[in-house]
Amino acid sequence: MGRAGYALKTVLETYDISQNKLATLLGVRRSVVFRWFHEQRDPTAETVSEIVKALNSVNPEAAQEFVKLYLGELIKPEDLEG
Rank of each mutant, 00 (worst) to 15 (best):
S31I: 05
R41L: 06
N59D: 14
A62D: 00
Y6G: 04
E50Y: 13
L26R: 05
M1S: 15
E13T: 11
V52E: 12
A54Y: 02
V48N: 02
L12S: 11
K53M: 11
M1A: 13
F34Q: 03
K21T: 15
E81W: 09
T10F: 14
L69V: 04
N56I: 00
V32S: 12
K68E: 14
V52W: 11
R35T: 09
T24F: 12
V32K: 09
V58D: 06
G5E: 13
I75A: 09
R41E: 14
E73S: 07
I75D: 00
E50P: 01
F34C: 09
E65G: 00
G27R: 08
F66E: 03
V28R: 15
R30N: 14
Q19T: 13
A63T: 04
V52H: 03
D79W: 01
Q19H: 10
K76W: 03
K53A: 14
L80T: 05
Y15A: 02
W36P: 02
L55C: 09
D16V: 10
L8W: 06
L22R: 06
N20M: 15
Q40Y: 09
E78F: 05
M1V: 05
E39N: 11
R29F: 08
S57M: 05
L8P: 03
T24M: 08
D42P: 05
T10P: 00
L80V: 03
A23M: 02
Y15I: 04
V52R: 08
T47Q: 11
